[in-house]
Computed example of a mutant assay.
Amino acid sequence: MTAPLPASRDEAAALLLEVLGASCPTGAARLIGSMGVPGAADAWSDIDLRWTVGPEGAEDALRSLRPTLERVGTVESLRVDPEPRADLRLVFVRFQGWPLWWRVDLEVHGQGLGSVDVPDADPWSPGESACMGVVVTLKTLARQRPADAEEQLAHAAARVGTTVVAGPWTVRVGSLLDEVAARSPGTADLVARTRRLAREVLGA
Rank of each mutant, 00 (worst) to 15 (best):
M1F: 13
L5W: 10
S8T: 12
A13Y: 02
A14S: 12
G21S: 06
C24M: 14
P25L: 09
T26P: 07
G27T: 06
A29K: 03
G33M: 11
G33C: 15
S34Y: 01
M35L: 15
M35H: 11
V37S: 03
P38D: 11
A43E: 07
W44R: 06
S45N: 09
S45P: 03
D46I: 12
D48C: 11
W51E: 01
A58P: 13
E59H: 13
D60E: 12
A61K: 04
R63K: 13
L65T: 02
P67W: 10
T68V: 09
E70R: 08
G73I: 05
V75C: 05
V75N: 05
D81S: 01
D81C: 01
E83R: 03
F95A: 04
Q96L: 14
Q96Y: 10
W101H: 15
W101I: 10
W102C: 05
E107H: 10
V108D: 02
H109S: 14
G110F: 03
L113Y: 02
L113P: 01
V116K: 03
D117E: 13
P123M: 02
W124K: 00
W124C: 05
S125I: 08
P126S: 05
G127V: 03
S129R: 07
M132W: 05
G133F: 00
G133Q: 00
G133V: 00
V134Y: 01
T137Y: 02
K139L: 14
K139I: 14
K139P: 15
T140P: 01
L141F: 08
A142T: 02
Q144M: 11
E151I: 08
Q152D: 15
A157N: 09
A157M: 15
R159S: 14
V160R: 01
G161D: 11
W169R: 01
V171I: 03
R172H: 13
V173K: 01
S175M: 07
L176K: 02
V180E: 04
V180M: 07
A182L: 09
A182S: 15
S184G: 12
L190H: 11
V191Q: 04
R193S: 07
E200H: 08
V201S: 02
L202P: 04
A204M: 07
